[in-house]
Design a protein around this nucleic acid. Sequence first.
DNA 1: GACAGCCTTGCACACGTGTGCAACTATAGC
DNA 2: GCTATAGTTGCACACGTGTGCAAGGCTGTC
Lengths: 340, 340
Amino acid sequence: MPDASGTPVTIVDVARRAGVSHSTVSRVLNGRPHIKPETRRRVEAALSELGYVANLSARSLAGGRLGLVGLVVLDLEGSYSHQVVRGVDQALAEVGLELMLCTTHRREQREHDYVARLSVGMCDGLIVLVPKSEQRYAKELAERRYPFVLVDHKGSAEASGVIARNEAGAIDAMTHLAELGHQRIGHITGSLETSAGADRLAGYRRAVADLGLDDDPSLVYEGDFSMESGEAGARHLMRLGQRPTAIFVGADAAAIGAAGELWRAGLSIPSDISLVGFDDLPEAEYAQPPLTTVRQPMADMGREAVKLLLARIDDPTLAVTHLELPTTLIVRSSTAPPRG
Amino acid sequence: MPDASGTPVTIVDVARRAGVSHSTVSRVLNGRPHIKPETRRRVEAALSELGYVANLSARSLAGGRLGLVGLVVLDLEGSYSHQVVRGVDQALAEVGLELMLCTTHRREQREHDYVARLSVGMCDGLIVLVPKSEQRYAKELAERRYPFVLVDHKGSAEASGVIARNEAGAIDAMTHLAELGHQRIGHITGSLETSAGADRLAGYRRAVADLGLDDDPSLVYEGDFSMESGEAGARHLMRLGQRPTAIFVGADAAAIGAAGELWRAGLSIPSDISLVGFDDLPEAEYAQPPLTTVRQPMADMGREAVKLLLARIDDPTLAVTHLELPTTLIVRSSTAPPRG
DNA sequence: GACAGCCTTGCACACGTGTGCAACTATAGC
DNA sequence: GCTATAGTTGCACACGTGTGCAAGGCTGTC
């Protein structure tokens, strides 16, 4: 029950009511020792009678904890961000911290701006999802000992990172196709600026070499994770003189785009051509046909990032950690042996 | 390029570099008049040379604008929140403001807590999506002249609100079913604690009366917008001695749940029973069969809320506004004339 | 009973920024 | 050349909270 004066209740109001100094109230709020039980009771009574709510800006300025973690993401349009955000949100809720979510709308400059602003007195720590220009701020944050974690990034000497075993996952996908009998497999890559995209391509190449598959540069189409790039990639691969009998796509969204394009070209999946995605987005299960894909533990990546971050908030001198989470091949109905 | 000392650059550092007082730097930053062009140039040079980033906590404490808007939502699990959040996010991005997103995880106490904390020095204004305990804070915020807007809520004497014309939308849905020839129509309500749920039920009742449809209390099942409540509602309606030939469901998520339950009971939609939802979530279009539904302009509601909020931030004495947005009936394949 | 030591509390300053007021400078008008 | 005025800038304080330091009170020990 705040006062009716129209301004929020401050620590000073509480102190006056309890007949103590504002320092004592601050100590009660922060659970400091050396408070007489009777005093603590009076202060707590005043706190709840006045309905005190901490001014976090003031607390931050004075060097206290905000109980707030910042999360910078590309956007909220796709399921991918959504899944990771859920994991982060849940993990933070469990420890009573709050989330400040900022979307960069895919503009790299905004990634840097957000990191700069959030790290100056707005949050206790920062998680950056799919960082694209981390080299612009990682060193500075590290110098300031500001806690932060990169997700879907390997990390670096200055930065902790959480990422899936993308190369191994890609090899799993390729091995599955090879075991079905496919010899000529196309690949629509994700954005090669990201570790995820680059590593999945590396896994593809590794599998082609190790399994003795057709090694033809025109089988690789450079995409960017988007549905549109999946469509374009499918068109490219269909135009080849010698078509692949299967396509490994570096992201489910792109795989769904490719599936649509193949369907429009009159091909049916998997009897005419097999398709494997990556991520295991919710829509992969509901696609027509349900998509075979490599599951990336997106919510877990968010949760692990929170764990790492909390540890660094508690002890900013902690060494950086690079965490790689395993993937799982999920076989559904978009893959089958090649014709004949 | 911040200094290498490990602490962020402050306005004082900039002032020293430019050979002026910190007041002058502050004035340059805030675009105040009466600055000699030459001085302004020196300050701007120092700002960019040092890579100054404002400490928002300090700015907030000193009474300045944060450029930050808080958004309190139930959760990010369903598409509904997601759509509104997108609208808010886009509208804010257009005017260069940032979003602070907080999820209550459906706990009403947290709604109140978040509103209290965010409104004390953390944000310039607040949007609350699907408010459930607004009476606990609306009056206080209004007294403090703190700008806030409720979304999916009618608003009150103290609170601005943005909401869809739920009653009219429900009447449209019912009229569509009646025109197809349905006489006995069930209704699975949304949460009746929300205006949306209550108003859609009111629309159902109004249509039953005005169109002379079967008026049987057992045709109404009280749900809560969730998929599970849709399943339970469908089970209830199937158990009735005299079954309805159509169901109007107060939310798409629940309608999809109901569709699943009907399918498991061996009924086919729309030949055995017609189904109409509400919201027009993205999944309504991809449901089996594609769902006839009442579109609620979710992203627009978010955008309009931002507009209202910005106006109140600019002038906190502005009168409260209650905005109602029209709905649109989207006819797909889940409705047909009744058997026989 | 005196002294040491711990418990408890308040004072005063710090954090970074915005702003009213006063002071100073430059310009123009007479 | 003097004054009035507008333009420009700095000083000092405010915002709300956390904390080092010191002072006071209490307890226990010899």
